[in-house]
Design a protein around this nucleic acid. Structure first.
Lengths: 226, 226
DNA sequence: CTTCCCCTTGACGGTTCCATGAAGGTTTCG
DNA sequence: CGAAACCTTCATGGAACCGTCAAGGGGAAG
């Protein structure tokens, strides 16, 4: 049950050095040499933490960060030689949680990773299936059942439902949903949420015209209830 | 509404500089000059983020950090001149979420704070449900229950009720209510409050003709009572 | 008891907000 | 390379809500 760390770094010497330093701390380290490689590895087996170098051949570190962040809440640390304030801000805005400049002390990197893991959402812990009336949500497998029958939801619809289900009864504003489902750096039409709520209702509600679970609270947002 | 930041820093010049830099970013900043002061302020009104200098008179930054962390999950940033790896590790082990060394760029500090706030659990403040007799007000869920049954209130009605509930028993004049519920720059009919009080009563009072909770004080205004 | 003032009540136009349908663009997969 | 699924935007209709007005009623002072 060790914590898995994915390091994205094109310089092989540094990659090996980082791997050894982190393995000394008791972590399981996987290395990727390019952005494409990293995305591929992460897609097939998500790590618990991702370390990204900015200077990569092909797609750069910012893009890798944004791409991973679109699909996952995994803690991301930028590890790079560029120490400009502008780069730090850009890295954090891209979705990174921390930004460490080379050369760095392995002990410090480890401490920062531990600090991030403390805050990270219980990644695989919430395997319990949530229930709302005849609704049955299984975050693990990305599966939703209604009265026992499987219901196919798209990725966005599922994340929207999970977000609402994370705090049942509580009202989420459109801004909050945009931030937490689509990404904090999303700028666009506010009606976007409405459309997806509607689609979600057509699939999840027995009678979409009279929603029983995905309820709209006029002037505030949406909420989920039993 | 705004995010509140508590800075703990004994050097007044730096404290003011930090305050100005953060206020430029749109945050509400409160300053403490010592560890004792900080703990006291945090106890009476928890901030959303805490910045701590290591070198403090009296109890040091580590102790302040541990003390706050014992009671709260608030994001904590160490802001200090000591850049030793040992200090960084110690700071993070003490419960800090990030460690920034002076001199630092305000933009970078802001970006790091934003990154932390993204991860922070929704602030635990204000989740208390207020009760008045059979009335039950839950701001989080945007709903009111009367004897267990849900009562639907509109946005304005809800804000009006919350305002009255903020100081039960106290009489609010129409001007005060207009200012605090509708906004400072409102010019219009004085009867506006009456109409909404009426609508509120029809929904909240068992017998709207004989109000038990939303009581009118002739010549003065309205008040809420159990 | 009378009068005045303030509050209540009901109704109505204007506005805001949400649901719905459809179309265009992007990604994914065969 | 083509098709299907999906995401996003836009326009439109309708419902809910807000603020205003005028008429009616009830309490307080004289």
């Amino acid at each position: 049950m060790g914590t898995r760390i994915l390091t994205v770094e094109d310089d092989e010497r540094i990659r090996i050095a980082v791997r050894m330093a982190l393995e000394d701390e008791g972590w399981i380290v996987d290395g990727a040499a390019s952005g494409e490689d990293a995305l591929e590895r992460f897609a097939e087996q998500p790590a618990d933490v991702v370390l990204i170098d900015l200077m990569l051949p092909g797609i750069d570190g910012f893009a890798v960060c944004r791409s991973i962040r679109r699909d996952s809440d995994v803690p991301i640390v930028m590890v790079t030689a560029r120490a400009d304030t502008h780069d730090v801000v850009a890295g954090l805005e891209a979705g990174a949680d921390d930004y460490v400049t080379k050369p760095f002390q392995p002990k410090e990197l480890s401490a920062r990773i531990r600090a991030l893991l403390r805050r990270a959402r219980p990644s695989s812990g919430g395997s319990a299936t949530l229930r709302f009336g005849e609704l049955e949500i299984t975050p693990e497998e990305g599966l939703v059942r209604r009265s026992g029958d499987e219901v196919h939801l798209t990725k966005t619809e599922f994340r929207l439902l999970c977000e609402l289900a994370s705090m049942p009864g509580r009202v989420f504003s459109r801004e909050q949903l945009l931030e937490r489902v689509w990404g904090y750096d999303y700028f666009g039409d506010g009606r976007l949420v409405d459309v997806h709520v509607r689609r979600l209702r057509t699939k999840v509600e027995p009678d979409p015209a009279a929603p029983r679970h995905v309820v709209t609270v006029r002037g505030l947002g949406y909420k989920l209830q039993g």
